[in-house]
C-alpha cells in the first residue's frame, strides 16, 4: 500500500486508450518498433548522467508528442500526476547527500549540498524523461498492441495469453468496483467519513474487496467454461496478426538508435 493517485490510473488508462485511436505517423508504426524504441530511450535516460542530454531527449519526446496529434495538456497532466511517485526521493537528495554545503536553512538547520542538489536534479530529469516516454508510448499504442508486440518479441505463451485476457477484463472490473461503490454511496456510505468508526469503515472496504475477489473468481470460471465450449485447450495460443515491418518502421527505429548514439557522442564532446 502507498499514498496513491490510483483512482486516477484507471481514468488515465481510459483516456490513453482513446488517444490510441487517433491517427498519425507514430500511431501507424508497428507496436514492436514503438515498444523497443521508447524502452531504449528510457534505458538510456536511466544510464546517462548528463543533464543536458536529458534535456535534449525530453525535447525530442515532446516533439514526438506534438506531431502525433495527442492532447498535449493531457500528456503533461499525466506526467505531472505521476511525478510524486519517484520525485519524492529526488527532492530529498539536496538534504541527505554529503558534499559541499551551499546553503543552510537558518531555522531548521538543514544543509543543502551542491552534490545533492545536482544529483536530485539528475534523478528528477531521468524521471521526467522516462515518464514522458511512457506517456507517449501508451498514448500511441493500445494495450492489446503492446501485449501482442511483447508476445512477438518472445514473451512466454501462457504469460502473454493471461495478459491479453487480463486487459480485456480490466475495465469491466473497474466498472464492477464503481457499481459496488455507487451502491454503497446510495446508502450514504463514505469511506472518508470520519464520523463513523475507522474499524467499521475498514470492514466495509474488506467486504468490497472480498466481493471483487469473488466476482473476478467466478467470472474467471465462467469465462473458462465459455472458452472451453469454443475449443480452448491448454495448447491454445493467442491470435497474433502477422504484421510485416514497413519502411516507416525501419526509419523510426533507425532514427531512434542514431539519436541515442548521437546523444552519447555529445556527452563525450568537451565543447558542451
Amino acid at each position: 500500500m502507498e499514498v496513491g493517485i490510483n483512482m486516477g490510473i484507471m481514468e488515465s488508462i481510459k483516456i490513453a486508450e482513446q488517444e490510441t485511436t487517433k491517427e498519425s505517423f507514430l500511431h501507424s508504426l508497428d507496436g514492436r518498433i514503438k515498444l523497443i524504441s521508447l524502452i531504449l530511450i528510457i534505458i538510456y535516460a536511466v544510464y546517462t548522467t548528463d543533464i543536458l542530454i536529458l534535456v535534449i531527449a525530453e525535447l525530442y519526446l515532446l516533439a514526438l508528442i506534438f506531431i502525433s496529434n495527442i492532447s498535449f495538456s493531457f500528456a503533461l497532466k499525466r506526467i505531472l500526476l505521476l511525478l510524486p511517485f519517484g520525485g519524492f526521493i529526488a527532492i530529498f537528495q539536496p538534504f541527505i547527500r554529503p558534499g559541499d554545503v551551499i546553503y543552510v536553512f537558518p531555522i531548521l538547520g538543514l544543509d543543502i549540498t551542491y552534490q545533492g542538489l545536482m544529483f536530485g536534479i539528475l534523478l528528477m530529469s531521468r524521471l521526467v524523461v522516462s515518464l514522458t516516454a511512457i506517456v507517449l508510448l501508451s498514448s500511441v499504442t493500445s494495450l492489446t498492441d503492446i501485449i501482442g508486440s511483447m508476445r512477438k518479441l518472445g514473451m512466454p505463451r501462457e504469460f502473454a495469453m493471461m495478459l491479453s485476457l487480463m486487459i480485456r477484463y480490466l475495465f469491466m472490473f473497474y466498472d464492477e468496483l464503481e457499481k459496488i461503490r455507487n451502491a454503497q454511496k446510495s446508502r450514504n456510505f463514505d469511506i472518508w467519513n470520519k464520523k463513523t468508526a475507522y474499524q467499521w469503515r475498514l470492514k466495509q472496504i474488506a467486504y468490497t474487496i472480498a466481493m471483487m475477489f469473488l466476482r473476478s473468481y467466478e467470472r474467471g470460471e465462467t469465462i473458462y467454461y465459455s472458452m472451453l465450449s469454443r475449443g480452448y485447450s491448454d495448447h491454445s495460443n493467442i491470435y497474433n496478426q502477422n504484421q510485416k515491418l514497413r519502411s516507416g518502421d525501419f526509419i523510426f527505429i533507425g532514427f531512434t538508435i542514431s539519436f541515442i548514439l548521437t546523444l552519447e557522442l555529445i556527452s563525450y564532446t568537451p565543447l558542451i
Binding site: 493471461m162 487480463m166 472490473f173 473497474y174 464492477e176 468490497t208 473476478s216 472458452m227
Partner: peptide
Amino acid sequence: IPLLAVMAAGIFAIQAMN
C-alpha cells in the same frame, strides 16, 4: 490460466481503490 488472468484484472481494480 483464465482464472489467474481474471484475478489479475480483479486485483488491478482492487489496487485502484484508495
